[in-house]
Amino acid sequence: MKFSIGGSLKLAFRPWVEGLEHIPAEGPAILASNHLSFSDSFFLPAVLDRKVTFIAKAEYFTSPGLKGKLTAAFFKGVGQLPVDRSGARGAGEAAIRSGIEVIERGELFGIYPEGTRSPDGRLYRGKPGGLARVALATGAPVIPVAMIDTEKIQPPGKVMPKLMRPGIRIGKPLDFSRYQGMDGDRFILRSVTDEVMYEIMKLSGQEYVDIYATAAKRQIAEAEKAAKAARTAGS
């Protein structure tokens, strides 16, 4: 199914790609990408010859009915791995364990260091838990990836995508093996994460914001709520 979905996406959207030579033909690697759209997890695997495993909400795999079964089959087909996110801390640990298992199988593991989609197209601070801990626990190289214009194809809240060409830039692998086994040191985790985010920023050309995307989303929601209250009061 991966190849049929990937072929359809490439035919319909014709994504351009730079840096494919940085993806190893075999062996494990972590693909660390910015996150602009729900469709990022589909476009990146579509342009690669190898399978990429991303983490997805377990609900995508357990919804009832025919629609639920079709959704589960689709996510499995594009290499998504279900993780129960019912508890924040437990979800993070489950994602890390899953990432390590993927790497230990010699496969490609995809992760979004920002932890959630960018609310405004800017690049936000990377969370030091998942990416850095998987990298330091396994010694696998980290390959920075920049998705370009995918937020214009399918903005948050929009169901139907717009037909246009997205882009993907793949950077040179980063070697953090010198820190292997130091995944319990929060300063090392922060340093590794920041280095990866800097490389993603160079590839994407995005403006960098040194706060977490989750905090930015809260600020935006609060501002919208305040603006709505002001309009209501003035009407």
Rank of each mutant, 00 (worst) to 15 (best):
T193S: 13
K158P: 06
I143T: 07
A216V: 03
A56S: 14
L70Y: 07
K51E: 13
G121I: 02
P161Y: 11
L189C: 11
G110M: 11
A94M: 02
R190T: 15
L81F: 01
I100T: 06
P64T: 03
K76G: 06
R117S: 01
F3M: 05
F42K: 08
G184C: 10
F176S: 09
R178E: 15
A72H: 03
S235N: 13
P161K: 13
I220C: 02
P45A: 13
G90Q: 07
I5M: 14
T62H: 03
E26C: 04
A91D: 11
V196P: 02
K10S: 08
A32I: 07
A56K: 04
A213M: 02
A95D: 05
A230K: 15
E59D: 12
K217M: 11
D49L: 12
I103C: 08
F109E: 02
T62W: 02
K152H: 14
I211L: 06
A146D: 05
H22P: 04
Q219L: 12
A73T: 03
L36R: 05
G90H: 01
S177D: 13
Y198Q: 04
V196C: 05
F42V: 15
G126Y: 01
R122Q: 10
K152Y: 14
I23F: 00
G167A: 11
G157W: 12
S39T: 14
S98K: 07
F74V: 01
G110L: 09
K69M: 15
F43S: 10
P156N: 06
I170D: 09
V192D: 05
P173S: 07
I111A: 02
A12V: 15
A91T: 12
F13Q: 13
D194A: 13
N34T: 11
G99I: 12
L136T: 01
S8L: 15
L31A: 03
D194N: 10
Q154A: 09
V142C: 06
K225Q: 10
A73M: 08
E224R: 15
L108S: 09
S235W: 06
G205E: 01
K228I: 01
M164E: 15
E59F: 05
A132L: 10
V159T: 14
G99T: 09
A88C: 00
G129A: 15
K228G: 02
K152P: 08
A95E: 02
K228A: 15
D40A: 11
T71A: 03
P113I: 09
I143V: 13
L136S: 00
P128S: 15
A140Q: 03
P156D: 07
